[in-house]
Computed example of a mutant assay.
Amino acid sequence: MTLRAGLIGMGAMGRNHARVLAGLEGVELVGVADPMFEEPVHGAPVVTDVEQLIALGIDYAVVACPTGLHESVGLALADAGVSALIEKPLADTVAGAQRLADAFAAKGLVAGVGHIERYNPALQSLQTRLAAGDLGEVYQVVTRRQGPFPHRIADVGVVKDLATHDIDLTSWVTGDDYQSVSAHTVKKSGRPHEDMVAVVAQMTGGVIANHLVNWLSPFKERSTVVTGERGCFIADTLRADLTFYANGVVTTEWELVQAFRGVSEGDMTRFALSKREPLLVEHERFRDAVLGKDSDIVTLEQGLRTVEVAAAILEAAATGRVVSTALAQERG
């Protein structure tokens, strides 16, 4: 069976989705919706809105338009009985994300959120190793995500855009939810939204999480550091590398070297990983889910939870308080 897929949005991320969809086995890209785009995309016609795209007869759609349009586009797809992969964040508000989750659930449709970092080889390997207990008890997760301002982003700040990557991946690799958050934000680029955030969070399992995110750095960094009782994993998702620093068991009698090394430095292992493109893997997983196969996708409930935590971070930054995220877990 060949699935008929549509795409909404031909921005930077939309172009990547179009490229992958055009070559995805078992899928035909039959149309693209974007009012600012006219040329055919990989042979597929371009229409102006989601209703015209639905009229082409599609099995599922990829939503890659600006975040503020996710809710209206997603609700139109759900109402038409079309499954959807919606780029992160799921919506720009918690209420909007909840409405999307409810709409797709009511129709029994397959729907997912495009949290692409889950499919990065370094984080896939890290999650597998943590789940297997390779690190023992996990103490802390520290993420650093920084780079220059992307002018294509105009409707949200770094918390709802970049930081949602870190919120989702931290919950995923630890298997825990966020319990409380505190945060500080700054606005330095003259835009109405924050362009830097520093977050300290407590996870339900006792893990401490720290997220440093900004659009103010001249170089790109994507780092996830997980520290536990047996050592430390460092995932560099720009290069899809994973390194493990073990706690040491060998002592040295050379006191000067011991002072520089620290008492717990041990072996370092850099893992050899199969490095497939994360976006392609994400699309393969979603295609399989639409076909009814057992497949690991980011659900709308998980995407909703990420939006809830992002909203709590913004509240914490605005009020200067530690904000509990436990109430959101009790909804319904």
Rank of each mutant, 00 (worst) to 15 (best):
S72H: 08
I58S: 08
T93C: 15
A91W: 04
D59E: 08
Q52W: 00
E87M: 11
A76M: 04
E51P: 02
T93W: 15
G68T: 11
V94R: 01
E51R: 05
A84G: 09
P66A: 14
P66G: 13
A80F: 03
A64L: 05
A91E: 10
D92P: 00
G81W: 15
G68H: 11
V94A: 02
T93G: 15
D79T: 07
P66Y: 12
D59L: 04
D92S: 10
A91C: 15
L77Q: 02
I54H: 08
L69P: 00
V94P: 02
K88E: 00
D92N: 06
I58A: 07
T93E: 15
C65R: 00
G68A: 13
P66M: 14
H70T: 06
S72T: 12
V63A: 07
D92I: 08
C65H: 01
L56E: 03
P66C: 14
A78V: 09
E87T: 10
L69N: 05
G68M: 13
I58L: 10
A76S: 14
H70D: 01
I86A: 11
G81S: 14
L75C: 12
L56A: 10
C65D: 13
G81P: 13
I86W: 09
L75R: 11
V94H: 01
T93H: 15
K88L: 00
L56D: 04
A76C: 07
V63H: 06
A91D: 13
Q52C: 00
L69C: 01
Y60H: 08
S83V: 04
T93S: 15
E71D: 07
T67Q: 04
A91F: 13
A80C: 03
P89G: 11
K88Y: 03
H70R: 09
D49C: 10
T48E: 14
D49E: 14
S72A: 13
T93R: 15
I58P: 06
E87H: 11
S83I: 04
I58T: 08
D79E: 14
A64K: 02
E51Y: 02
L69Y: 01
T93I: 15
D92W: 01
A61L: 09
Y60V: 02
A64H: 03
Q52G: 15
A55Y: 01
A55T: 05
L75N: 09
A61I: 11
L90D: 00
G68F: 07
G68I: 12
G74A: 11
A84E: 07
